[in-house]
Amino acid sequence: MQHGVARRSAIVLLAGLLLTTPFWLPNPYHLHILIMAGIFSILALSLNLLLGYTGLLSLGHAAFFGIGAYTSALLALKAEWPFVAGFVAAVMLAGGSGYAIGRLALRLRGAYFVLVTISFAGVASLVSVNWMELTNGPLGLPGIPAAEVAGFVFRTKRAVYYLVLAVAGLAYLVCRRLVRSRMGRAFVALRENEALAASVGVDGARHLGLATVISAGMAGGAGSLYAHYTRFVSPEVFLFSYTVTMVIMVVAGGKGTLAGPIVGAVIFTILPEALREATSWQWQMLLYGVLLILTLLFLPRGIVPALTAWRDRR
């Protein structure tokens, strides 16, 4: 009982903290970092569904992000769709391509799945560069309108912060619901021992397919938010470095935990900016790499599992 009360007050405290942030942290640069942390939280949550729960190492996740960003941007610019419709379309189109990748996952495991996802992202990236008529090629798509919901325009940083917070919160709830359901247990069973899972009646094809669809759809949603926040999309959204960043967040934060990806996203969005402040540019990325290595050597399972284990020991 005592535990329940404490936990509930912690949730209220955290929610209060997140909801009031723009008031005690008014500098737009800091809000910008938090907005990016929020968008990357959604991406990390979505990658964690595959990497952490089904054990599928997808290194093409930037493709879903990019597909979402371009879908939303093109629909807003060329067809003048409202933001909400574009957002839904981005989620669906990214989810659809996730379905195709999910089908592949049925046949391929481990290293082979890794390479297929990298290749898929590579092709998507080259299409965005070379299909000038549709994507405007390397020139990118400028002038994407700010997000608008029911007549309210998310033009200020503060407004976008709340929008991203809401979507990230939704993504978190979806993930939590999913992994605590029968389906989540099936994911884990498939990760641990696929043959055993199949023998007790877990339909691997259906579950892996569903996991990739949901995961890709979430990444597409993050892409849509990103497009309407930065107001400019170019083929760089498909870059492999986005995927690498997501993997860093999930694994260093703690894969297979609900909090891990978000903690990872927040820390590894803020870290490069903090290093910007702390050192000169020559040392920033060097230190980033070293800190990443040290994190994993000391906390090989990630930050959140390490903290949990530390608490349990006390």
């Binding site: 404490a6 955290l14 903690v263 927040v266 930050i303 903290l307 949990t308 608490r311």
Partner: peptide
């Protein structure tokens, strides 16, 4: 409770 503080609020 501690776990919550540790995993969420402290790093942030």
């Amino acid at each position: 409770m501690r776990r919550w503080v540790l995993t969420w609020i402290a790093p942030t």
